[in-house]
């Protein structure tokens, strides 16, 4: 709980993690609500809009512990930008949540020295690129899964890739530079050393490293997600199983249902895992521990 000492290098106390989480959630959530409310301009299929203020989570991931800042930001987006505006999209959010947290986390760990502008700039772009790449991959996969025998339809596969590729470039160049690169490079040096004491922390310094257990391969993330999904199911089964009102007759009827549900859950898990792994292969081996993400605390 609250008890700890701050002798170790850059280990945060539970409460400090919570502070970073709340800070990131509130601010990125607020910015999301603002960007949702600002209308966007279309030029044919190209959308000129403020897609997101990625600089907020990027800045926080670079200055603080990237894991909690990243998860806080993603959750902030879901809560302020989706649930509160009545746009919560269920499973779709899960995919966004994972992609965005992952991208921001990697960008945060990439920076060793927050005072080095080149590193900060590179990290900001990297974050946007990873996020957009995952989103594009998932979108392509969706068409893949959704259209039966995709190869049999001439031109469709190519067009999906081209359209997604185009929006990828558009987002990276437009949002990436204007709303990630420039503001992050402006903000990080200004806030470094100034914002940390407000949360009762020491600024990250050049020699701080995150413990290796946090940088983990894709296999762990996949198991993590599977376990989480399983936990979800078991929790549900056990809870409803012990429900007093649950009458014996119903159990039989619902037995089949649970098989369907678990099948469905398994499929979505597979889908996410594949997409994450595909994009991971090309990128980097920095990966976060998905299990930890479940325990933001």
């Amino acid at each position: 709980m609250g008890t700890q000492t701050l002798n170790n290098r850059y280990t945060l106390t539970q409460s400090q993690k919570m502070m970073v989480f709340i800070l990131s959630m509130s601010l990125y959530g607020l910015s999301n609500m603002i960007t949702e409310l600002v209308p966007s301009a279309y030029l044919g299929p190209i959308e000129f809009s403020i897609e997101y203020f990625a600089f907020i989570p990027l800045t926080l991931c670079i200055l603080f512990h990237p894991l909690y800042a990243a998860i806080g930001a993603s959750l902030g987006e879901v809560i302020f930008g989706e649930i509160m505006l009545g746009q919560f999209g269920g499973f779709g959010e899960l995919e966004k949540f994972i992609a965005f947290s992952l991208a921001m986390y990697i960008a945060g760990t990439f920076v060793r020295d927050p005072k080095n502008r080149k590193q900060v700039a590179a990290a900001a772009l990297l974050g946007v690129i990873i996020h957009q790449a995952i989103s594009a991959t998932v979108d392509i996969l969706k068409v893949w899964v959704g259209v039966e025998e995709l190869e049999a339809v001439p031109g469709l596969a190519e067009s999906v890739v081209v359209i997604e590729g185009f929006s990828f470039l558009n987002d990276v160049l437009f949002s990436g530079i204007l709303f990630a690169l420039l503001p992050t490079v402006y903000l990080v040096p200004r806030l470094y050393g100034k914002i940390e004491p407000l949360l009762g922390m020491k600024p990250r310094d050049r020699n701080d490293r995150y413990s290796l257990t946090e940088i983990i391969g894709p296999r762990l993330i996949a198991t993590g997600i599977l376990l989480a999904a399983a936990a979800f199911l078991f929790e549900f089964l056990s809870e409803s199983g012990f429900n007093v009102e649950w009458e014996a007759d119903f159990l039989e009827t619902y037995g089949d249902w649970f098989i369907f549900v678990s099948l469905g859950a398994a499929f979505i898990v597979a889908l996410i895992t594949i997409s994450v792994m595909l994009s991971k292969k090309r990128k980097t081996q920095h990966l976060k521990n998905a299990k930890k993400e479940e325990k933001v605390s």
Binding site: V143, G146, V147, E148, L150, V153, P154, G155, L156, E158, S159, V160, V162, I163
Partner: peptide, 18 residues
């Protein structure tokens, strides 16, 4: 886009299903 890549109107059905 798929017309552009040499597809034809048969793409409509799968897209509608999607």
């Amino acid at each position: 886009a798929s017309l552009f890549f040499g597809g034809d109107w048969t793409s409509i059905l799968p897209l509608l299903i999607l």
